[in-house]
Amino acid sequence: MRWVNRKVGRTNAFIMGAIPIVLLMIVYLVLAGDRHAINPNDKILPLPSGMVAAMSDLVTQPDRLSGDYLFWSDTLSSLTRLFIGLGISTLSALLVGLVLGVLPPVRATFGPLVTGIAVIPPIALLPILFIAFGLGETAKVALIVIGIAPFMMRDIAAHIAALPREQIIKAQTLGASSWQVMIRVALPQAMPRLIQALRLSLGPAWVFLISAEAIAADSGLGYRIFLVRRYLSMDIIIPYVAWIALLAVAIDLLLTFSSRRMFPWAHGGDR
């Protein structure tokens, strides 16, 4: 049987998906064990026991200087920045994408501008943002927004512009004005796509968040990683990276789930 025709059941898919992850962990443990056999104080590949010991301070003990539980305060400040950035991007993508997609004159006027902004590497703008907004929260949120909003705007605008012409015509023969076409035909059909675009933007959003935190911050997951890098504290960096991955996966699953719950009509094929 050809490989393209091989179907994988649910249980098998779960097991098969777990295999590479487990293998990778085993390889890591073996390598770490080897290094620790030679040098019990090795910092490059810490053992799980070392990670737990290093992390437990951050998770359960308040910091002596600030009195914060660092792990949780880092998580909170990173997620706050991330969610504000994602929220602003999503909202502006919806508004701009909608008018750009539905109204040809607006598309002709602002389409090139959005495209122009979208092709600028956002990190190149970071100095400008720091100069303009200072080193506080605004610049970090602005970096996320500038990084992902233009992509989302273009995606939503293209999706709406690609709605079947027949639907727009039909809506007009039913008496709909431009405004009514926008809010009753284009907007609801853009929503599942918006969630899709948000999911795709999560990766870049994390990149911009960590970059901004690495350069100038006093808390945050990215800040902590880059801070402890100076002491080669892999026993903190690795758990932090794993935690970021876990958060990212959780947000992604949440978005998928909510799209299915809120827009069942858009998932007709795979229900």
Binding site: P164, Q167, K170, A171, T173, L174, G175, F263, G268
Partner: peptide, 18 residues
């Protein structure tokens, strides 16, 4: 287009989200 002329196309005449 206006409401004085109704139309039925071969496809895509209905709103899939409603």
């Amino acid at each position: 287009c206006g409401p004085d002329r109704g139309v039925v196309f071969q496809r895509y005449s209905v709103f899939s989200h409603l």
